[in-house]
Nucleic acid binder design. Structure first.
Length: 876
RNA sequence: GGGCGAGUAGCUCAGCUGGGAGAGCAUCCGGCUUACAUCCGGAAGGUCGCAGGUUCGAGUCCUGUCUUGCCCACCA
């Protein structure tokens, strides 16, 4: 197979993904006894969504993990799927309807839901294709959707079970209400933002004369006031408890009550109590048995309870109420005030606390088990710090409002009889049978209009995708899953709830390890989002840099903190690295021709042994970091080994041998290429597949090849020494050339002061052989060499070299250079000697550290001697 | 009001359980050396936010502090 000069990702990616799909390499089997199961469920992306950077990150990392385990020989299964994303998807389709000049209400429920299904049919595969473009090796035969029949059944089953266990209930409570979406929201779906507002001081006349001044940020809610509260310990006002005030405008009689909830320091120390529109007031109202008045309609306009303001929008009503109060002399003053305002997570509308009848799930009993599972180590968070947040949330958990006044989602499996009695069942037929039994006759049932919160299906995902509540083979083989990876933004929404659901319904943890990724932010540290216009489309990045380059950049974000900025530099670097890999492969394959030589059994050259040892070390580092999910460290190790050890040094050293037809070096290069291709594969699957196929030794895919194991090499310290001498001398000669502008074509004379027959011999041989790395050099070696006049000096701790450059070299400059080097050595030596002169250090530091320090001192002393001698001979 | 993260070379960031400060980009100099100019070689660049403390030894651990970002919380 011919490889192009440059790596061209687009063709390679499309071709190889097709190859994998046709080969069915990602499909997992059940009942393979000898294999260890390893499973991951994907955090299901919104079915009509598009891939964003968070997805790119999450799915890259999941794919690295699953590919690694597949290559380890595990029965690796990555369960893919999509989420119906109730409110998000409904909003998208509603926006589309708005463009067409209609609304869902005009369409009606059934027609609207049909429209959403159409939408899903049209756009639902886009995100899947995008995951494929990223290289994700999901088992597509197991693709699921949260509204699939099987998963819907799980949802109904769970609802009924919770109902029967007394853990779901229906009731009228104050909930977060989005007037734009016209639905209730859970606490988690409300985003709080600090905004500039005002504190309005209103005068409420007292029945017995005089008045009270009360501060509020939402003056229009006064229409729903049913009391006034003061702190019982507040001497200014506590005499009023038990008396009455009169509500301005409406003239309602308001009892004045005492409540610990009132902060005497705030405002005037008096609180208007609006149980229908404020959570604190709602609690006071319950305690005091106050009436709750709802002044709002579902769409945010004011209702009949608002009297003269009926029909107005919220903002207009606020203005109108203030004007009226002003006119009545009841508006004392206005102060600017910054406070937190709740917004709908999905449409950004200001959320209103609203009294309404909803379904709730009691979470406390489930939360206790979920806390225990992490406390006793059955589930582990990576990074570990997230456990604290997990505990904090679960320990303070509140009931979950699970009903939504939407049309897109799982309809609540509750049917009402003619008298409003609830029949909770998994199917209408079942409910009907029970209803008929109850009434003793055939009755008409009406199903609850609401649907369930979209997370009510997501929290079952790890087992519902495997067919639960049926006892399926997949469940037996792959549940609990091995690993979950997601961003911290859905730690509460999803992760905690999955743990709760799984423990409650299956008795098992849903996963053993949870890896929490950072979140992408823009240059200014702002969260990336489409609405802010600061998001980056990963598909564009794939087009520009290639999927493998994007994956490398993603893998390298993992060392960071809670947030990461767009890694533009890593993308370029990744693309360059791939080109490097590509050309290395091209070079090696070119020299292999049609042969695929094996690794020679006997390896005598130091650079061969050295590179094999480095390969082994690198393999070990990569495996270790993959086990620990330190993806960035694995990539760094691969990068350094490939680029520096192999390409910069080993391949360069191999060139003269290749020219001379040395078969051993070809065997070694072939081995290196084979091993590196496998090592790199989980991170950069496309390019490695292409190289694997070009190698052509295994007709199957590299994705099912065996992941390399570190082969312990005989640690011959002589190899490392020889290599460092070689690198030092090569570097020294290159420096001399650069420093004195000696063109690469001009031959240098190098006089090496060393025993030509000693340990340095192979190094000198190699240096002669590899003149391509330094430019032409005529080398002379003797133990008692003297520096000719006008020589540049290369000083290493175990040898020195003189490069005669009379007429070219500026001796003062060379002297300065040596002096600078000497100063650095002296400083280091002083530190080492101070350490070794410190008895405490000798007594307390571990032996190997002391030994290392001694060796270092010896090296530095040798180098110091040589530098000083050279300086003297330079006339310093 | 709590909690968490980040502050290391001009920039973006590595630096695991404490033991000789690193990479890439950018800068400067020199190279189209037939794998690669998405390249090769050379150089320059840092009191590791600040102040204490523990330790023979701190970028790494502890305390405090500053800057910055985020999350949670019923302050009208």
């Amino acid at each position: 197979m011919e490889l192009t000069k440059r790596y061209q990702p687009a063709d390679v990616e499309a071709k190889n993904y097709r190859f994998w799909e046709e080969g069915d390499f990602f499909r997992a089997s059940v009942g393979v006894v000898r294999k260890v199961p390893f499973s991951i469920v994907i955090p299901p992306p919104n079915v009509t969504g598009r891939l964003h950077m968070g997805h790119a990150l999450n799915n890259t990392l999941q794919d690295v993990v699953i590919r690694y385990h597949r290559m380890l020989g595990d029965e690796a299964c990555w369960f893919p799927g999509t989420d119906h994303a109730g409110i998000a998807t409904q909003n998208v389709v509603e926006k589309d309807l708005a463009r067409q000049g209609t609304t869902r209400h005009e369409l009606g429920r059934d027609a609207f839901v049909a429209r959403v299904w159409d939408w899903k049919a049209k756009y639902g595969s886009e995100i899947i294709d995008q995951l494929k473009a990223l290289g994700c090796s999901c088992d597509w035969s197991r693709l699921r959707f949260t509204l699939d029949e099987g998963l819907s059944k799980a949802v109904r089953h769970v609802f009924v079970r919770l109902y029967e266990d007394g853990l779901v209930y229906r009731g009228e409570y104050l909930v977060n209400w989005c007037p734009r979406c016209r639905t209730a929201l859970s606490d988690l779906e409300v985003d709080h933002q600090d905004e500039d507002g005002a504190l309005y001081f209103l005068r409420y006349p007292l029945e017995k004369g005089g008045h009270l001044t009360i501060a509020t940020t939402r003056p229009e809610t006064m229409l729903g006031d049913t009391a006034i509260a003061v702190h019982p310990g507040d001497e200014r006002h506590n005499g009023l408890i038990g008396s009455y005030a009169i509500l301005p405008i409406l003239g309602r009689r308001l009892p004045i009550v005492g409540s610990e909830a009132v902060d005497p320091e705030f405002g005037t120390g008096t609180l208007k109590v609006t149980p229908g529109h404020d959570p604190v007031d709602f609690e006071i109202g319950r305690k005091e048995g106050l009436e709750s008045i709802n002044i709002l309609n579902g769409d945010g306009t004011l209702n009949a309870a608002a009297g003269p303001f009926q029909g107005m929008e919220r903002e207009a009503a606020r203005k109108a109420v203030l004007e009226r109060l002003q006119a009545d002399g009841a508006l004392e003053r206005i102060e600017p005030y910054r406070h937190s305002v709740g917004h709908c997570e999905r449409c950004d509308a200001v959320v209103e606390p609203l009294l309404s009848t909803q379904w709730f799930a009691r979470m406390k009993p489930l939360a206790d088990k979920a806390i225990a599972a992490v406390k006793d180590g059955r589930i582990q968070f990576v990074p570990e710090r997230w456990t604290k947040l997990y505990f904090d949330w679960l320990e303070n958990i509140r009931d979950w409002c699970i009903s939504r006044q939407l049309w897109w989602g799982h309809r609540i499996p509750v049917w009402y009889g003619p008298d409003g009695r609830e029949f909770v069942a998994e199917t209408e037929a079942e409910a009907s049978v029970r209803a008929d039994e109850h009434y003793g006759r055939s009755v008409e049932l009406r199903q609850d209009e609401d649907v369930l919160d979209t997370w009510f299906s997501s929290w079952l995902w790890p087992f519902s995708v495997m067919g639960w509540p049926e006892e399926t083979d997949d469940l037996k083989a792959f549940f609990p899953t091995s690993f979950l990876l997601t961003g911290f933004d859905i730690l509460f929404f999803w992760v905690s709830r999955m743990v709760m659901a799984s423990l409650y319904f299956t008795g098992e943890v849903p996963f053993r390890t949870v890896y929490i990724t950072p979140l992408f932010v823009d240059e200014r540290g702002q969260k990336m989002s489409k609405s802010k216009g600061n998001s980056v489309d990963p598909i564009d990045l794939i087009g520009e840099y290639g999927a493998d380059a994007l994956r490398l950049a993603m893998a390298r974000t993992t060392g960071k903190g809670r947030t990461v900025r767009m890694p533009w530099g890593d993308l370029t670097e990744g693309r360059n690295f791939l080109n490097k890999i590509w050309n290395m492969a091209r070079f090696i394959l070119m020299h292999l021709g049609d042969e695929r030589p094996e690794l020679p059994c006997e390896v005598t050259r130091f650079e061969d042994r050295y590179i094999l040892r480095r390969l082994s070390e690198t393999t070990e580092i990569v495996r270790k970091n993959l086990e620990e999910y330190s993806f960035h460290l694995a990539v760094e190790a691969l990068y350094a080994f490939t680029w520096h050890d192999v390409c910069d040094w080993y391949v360069e050293m191999a060139k003269p041998r290749l020219a001379a037809g040395d078969d051993k070096v070809r065997g070694l290069l072939c081995h290196l290429l084979r091993e590196m291709t496998k090592l790199l594969h989980p991170f950069v699957p496309f390019i490695t597949e292409e190289i694997w196929q070009a190698l052509g030794e295994d007709p199957r895919s590299v994705c099912v090849a065996e992941y390399p194991c570190a082969r312990p090499q005989n640690p011959d310290p002589g190899d490392a020494w020889a290599m460092s001498m070689f690198q030092g001398m090569t570097g020294g000669l290159r420096s001399v050339r650069a420093e004195w502008n000696v063109p690469a074509s001009v031959e240098l004379r190098a006089i090496v002061k060393a025993d030509p027959e000693g340990a340095l011999r192979p190094v000198l041989e190699r240096l002669r052989e590899c003149s391509g790395m330094t430019g032409p050099v005529r080398m002379e070696t003797s133990s008692d060499a003297q520096a000719p006049k006008g020589s540049a000096r290369v000083v290493l701790h175990d040898l020195e070299m003189y490069v005669p450059l009379a007429g070219v070299i500026d001796l003062d400059a060379e002297k300065t250079r040596i002096q600078k080097e000497l100063a650095a050595v002296n400083a280091e030596l002083a530190r080492a000697e101070a350490k070794l002169g410190n008895e405490q250090f000798l007594a307390r530091a571990p032996e190997d550290v002391v030994e290392k320090e001694r060796a270092k001192r010896e090296e530095l002393r040798k180098k110091q001697d040589r530098l000083e001698a050279n300086l003297r001979s330079l006339g310093g």
